[in-house]
Write a protein that binds this DNA or RNA. Sequence first.
RNA 1: UGAGGCGUAGCGCAGCUUGGUAGCGCGUUUGGUUAGGGACCAAAAGGUCGUGGGUUCAAGUCCCGUCGCCUCAACCA
Length: 476
Amino acid sequence: MAKENQFVEQIADIESDFPQWYTDVVLKTKLVDYGPVKGTMVIRPYGYAIWENIQKELDARFKQQGVQNAYFPLLIPMSFFTKEAEHVEGFAPEVAVVTHAGGEELAEPLAIRPTSETIIGTMMGKWVQSYRDLPMKVNQWCNVMRWEKTTRPFLRTSEFLWQEGHTAHSTAEEAQTETLAMLEIYKQFMENCLAIPVLTGRKTEKEKFAGAVATYTMEAMMHDGKSLQSGTSHYMGQNFAKAFEIDFLGQEGVLEHAYTTSWGVSTRLIGAVIMTHGDARGLVLPPVVAPTQVVIVPIAARKPGVNEACEELRAELAAAGVRVVLDNSDNSPGWKFNEWEMKGVPLRIEMGPRDIEAGKMLFARRDTLEKSEVSRENAAASVQAILAQIQGNMLEKARAHRDSRIVYADDMAGILAGVEGGNFVKAGWCGCRDCEDKIKAETAATARVFAEGESAEKCAVCGKEAKHVIIYARAY
RNA sequence: UGAGGCGUAGCGCAGCUUGGUAGCGCGUUUGGUUAGGGACCAAAAGGUCGUGGGUUCAAGUCCCGUCGCCUCAACCA
């Protein structure tokens, strides 16, 4: 009990004070630190390593889809933004602008990119001439800046890292197919790599990207039942092609506007991992993206043979491709257990004189906190098997948590009660903007995504005939 | 941007009401004993009290400004 109390002092209670728990965990596990400028974050090595693993997994999938990486400039002439009316309206309030350089005021102010549709559209306009140039698919890994009012590490920062893919196609059908294909790639990545189940589908007009014809989203449920928009894929139709003159000569010799898409996920995904899987002890990281998959804690390390046996095990696992650390520090074993659990390492192996004598090792799983004795032989195979089990179990657990918190409502009171209880609420919607606004005003919940293929009799707000079913939730 | 809270040692905090020698716990350093769930003993180091100005013989404490962080609300990946 005394031990538990000591632990509780370190991070806030996850059930009663989730926001503070989040802040405590990201700082104490050294994922992140605050930058000196408001809303900026320093992504520390432990956090950046997660991002690198995310990048590695996604980048391979993009390339399979025929997307090539490129890099476009950070600075974009302000005039570019005014070319697409909805786009500038949506982004103008949060753009940071460079007005001075070289000791002089610039003739034209330069926007620090909040997103790159305008510059990439401009360049594609230059590069695309013929239907033979299409489809054109580029992606960039970069930073963007959006001057948000309130910020939180990973979830919402002034500057963040992301990838933005941009494609141009000769037909609407092909561009729409691409939009949905990327959404599906994201979904598979979320579930298989981050162990986060997501609901995918279209956003309402009110919630869609500024300048898009249609926005598709992945919504994930966090520990407290709130939703996190984890990634989006937009179908732009010809909106940006018209604004930036992405025109091509078709097979029939007629000049046409291309159809474009864009899609992105950001360092917010790290926040999603933290808030989906975390527990009272801190982080729980999915093995696929965990910077350290296995930590070996020696017991009675000064007894002869212990350190040697642990180092031998470490080398054996490392050689098999496992990301493994041997904690040789002077801290007591109990201290190490708690520390590495807070840091979310999926598997801990304890090895002491007793185990060495018996030819065994002790596995302690982070996801279930269960311990088991395992034969020292074929250690790498045992470790890989249990890591795969942990990965699968984490997804199942997150899915069960989410599914237990999806409820139905047929009126405003039901929606309010549902979201206050930390649920996703499915309800009918007539399709009008007024009803959508009312729900937001009265319940602080927003329409997260259309529930495809479901039907309801009446709109939960006005009682008229329902045209759609919407998933409402409070969101980060 | 609206409401509330907070800035004092690396971290967590007390001290402010009623101005008068800068404190506590954890951590750190050194030496020793330990080790299967945050070990123990002994000694030591560590501070422009966020920052600028004002009041005063005297400011961590009172007054004004300013910067930053956290929470809630409105905007977004």
